[in-house]
Design a protein around this nucleic acid. Structure first.
Lengths: 254, 254
DNA sequence: AAGCGCGTTACGATAGGCGTAACCCGAAAC
DNA sequence: GTTTCGGGTTACGCCTATCGTAACGCGCTT
């Protein structure tokens, strides 16, 4: 999969390492110099230079105990980004609308690096709700995020499905054949409902967001606790999500 | 101002340039390679390598017309950052609370590079409201953000005040002597109200967030259209902001 | 056809950045 | 108290990653 060309490349290695450092700090708040160096297999002086450079620009901040976190410049970058990435900018108000109507958590997910990645979300104001998190990754093969897989070209699809399917709960599909059959069914019906495949006691409904040529751009999703979700609710979610999906497609320019 | 030490430095220049590129793309969405190179006074091949490296990691995205925008990784970085920067994480719900009660826009601003910088905000749900933007900078010498200046050490304060004060509206203070006197008054009363100093027709109220030692960390702010803001409203805002400020101070650990 | 300007590639020269080694310092160990 | 350890930091000489020049392709305008 992840084939990085051995040395022949037109990228700047030190910059690339520095990005790794930044992402590492993002993932592990309050990490120390030595840990970063170990994680990335680099030397301490090198990482120190990188962190100092990042700190000077406010991308990371060093606490007085010597640990590193992201800094204010990263916040600015992020908010700028969410207005610049069309998909997110357009989907955000729509996710909120669906979330308000369903009174449950909604998400926008894309395929990234063989996984599904949450890039926008809405959580309703109620005590008990599904927790979503921008940046969180999930396998493509479990839960209703399977829709992302279902609309790929067959050969791409197959190479996205790993040999062994990770089992998250007892309901997770772990047989490749069964999964492919399920994907076929999803494509025919245009949505996917998952009962406790990712987390027990959670229902998840997803609908694909399609481009003009039928290729899949993203998935919109409602997640809810199973105990308060009737069949009729699921049906309602599907309708809401289908509306949302086509609204996003249109506003993206098709 | 912008003094970069000639060569003696323990930072990685290529990384530093790359950050400049990133910030440049953030500020100018849909910018082209050549423009970036010109803006930064660098050669095109160099910037091309940088952009490619950033693109590979999803920090920027190249459109099919050859323009660059921030990418999804930047969004992830940003949301991670806003949970990692203590001040922002703590202030956000408090800003929302004040904003709901005042039914006007609230902001959290810090001193950054001789300017005031918005790092968190809340906008109420009403048709006409003050627009706030994370990342937007304003001079320290105009508007109620003067509170940030008012609580600095006198000598630091003076060196933050430029020779000539930028005039934004006819109400902006442009005389250094008058400004210093005003700052003294602000420090004594503990807040600052600005009527149309930054934008005509806008009222802005700010209260400092202080550390245990009395040094200023940030400012919390309410901004509102003048026509619907009575003296009594301003007084109410001041009370709300003072509560908010001390709540933030406490939750920061003092 | 010629000219322009953008993005891109190739390549040889060089200085930027690398790792090694050593140092500092506080905390833990003894 | 001294010693040891491990974190962070500095110094410096070698080397290669990275740079800029120059040239190319290509689309659009003239």
């Amino acid at each position: 999969m992840d084939k990085r060309q051995p040395s022949k490349s037109n990228i700047v290695q030190s910059v690339d390492v520095c990005i790794e450092v930044l992402l590492n700090v993002a993932k592990n708040p309050d990490i120390r110099l030595t840990e970063v160096a170990q994680d990335l297999g680099e030397t301490k002086p090198r990482i120190l230079r990188m962190l100092r450079t990042l700190e000077r620009r406010g991308l990371v901040r060093k606490s007085d105990t010597g640990t590193y976190r992201l800094g204010t410049t990263a916040i600015i970058l992020g908010t700028a980004a969410s207005t610049q990435v069309d998909l997110v900018r357009i989907a955000n108000p729509i996710l909120e609308e669906v979330g308000q109507k369903a009174n449950e958590t909604t998400q926008l997910r894309i395929i990234d690096n063989g996984e599904s990645l949450c890039i926008a979300k809405f959580e309703p104001m109620r005590d008990l709700r599904v927790q979503a998190m921008i940046g969180r990754r999930r396998p493509l093969t479990a839960g209703s995020y399977k829709v992302l897989l279902a609309y790929l070209q067959p050969q791409v699809q197959l190479q996205m499905i790993p040999e062994t399917l990770p089992r998250l709960t007892k309901r997770t599909i772990t047989d490749r054949g069964k999964l492919v059959a399920e994907l076929d069914k999803i494509r025919r019906q245009g949505f996917c409902v998952s009962y406790g495949e990712v987390s027990d006691q959670l229902v998840s409904v997803s609908v694909p967001v399609l481009a003009f040529d039928g290729s899949v751009i993203a998935a919109v999703n409602v997640g809810a606790p199973a105990f308060r979700t009737q069949k009729s609710d699921v049906d309602r979610f599907i309708v809401l999500l289908k509306e949302a999906s086509s609204k996003i497609s249109v506003r993206l320019g098709w």
